[in-house]
């Protein structure tokens, strides 16, 4: 399967040039970009690991792409990497765009566990198959 979190998951994976264009769009809007990575793709795993702090005061996408290259060198293949854009303006003060730039070659997906309860109710648990293995050994 292919997890479809993020702004652009239904399009073919972006080339560096295409990522760079999105980066520039964010920079032109005054948003700070940050890369994050994880090997736990659960939809409610909010806090992926931060690759450094958000990149403030960058003018050109090339500066941000340097950081993506550095992050990829360490985490590509064994982790999902996503790029997040933060808008600090009043009334928003949150994320404006969030896209997956890198994903592991094989994505095993999730299983749904159903716990039957009284009155036909079912308690659902979503579990990523990879998380049966310890962190750091999941996509190797």
């Amino acid at each position: 399967m292919r997890i479809t979190q993020g702004t652009f998951s239904f399009l073919p994976d972006f080339t560096d040039e295409q990522i760079s264009a999105q980066v520039q769009y964010c920079l032109d809007n005054g948003w700070a970009l940050n890369f994050e990575y994880t090997d736990d793709p659960h939809p409610r795993n909010t806090y992926w690991e931060m690759w450094g702090i958000p990149l403030f005061d960058i003018a050109d996408a090339a500066g941000v792409m340097m950081e993506l290259a550095a992050c990829r060198k360490v985490h590509a293949g064994t982790n999902y990497i996503r790029m997040t854009a933060f808008d600090s303006s009043h009334g928003w003060e949150s994320i404006r765009l969030s896209m997956i730039t890198d994903r592991p070659a094989h994505e095993p997906g999730f299983m749904v566990e159903r716990q039957e309860q009284a009155g036909r109710r079912i308690a659902y648990t979503t579990r990523a198959y990879v998380t049966t293995r310890p962190a750091g050994e999941r996509y190797t």
């Binding site: 960058i58 050109d60 090339a62 340097m66």
Partner: peptide, 14 residues
């Protein structure tokens, strides 16, 4: 290294 790279990132495109 991070300090120098930070400045380079900010200067990219300029």
């Amino acid at each position: 290294a991070p300090k120098t790279k930070d400045m380079i990132k900010k200067a990219m495109g300029g």
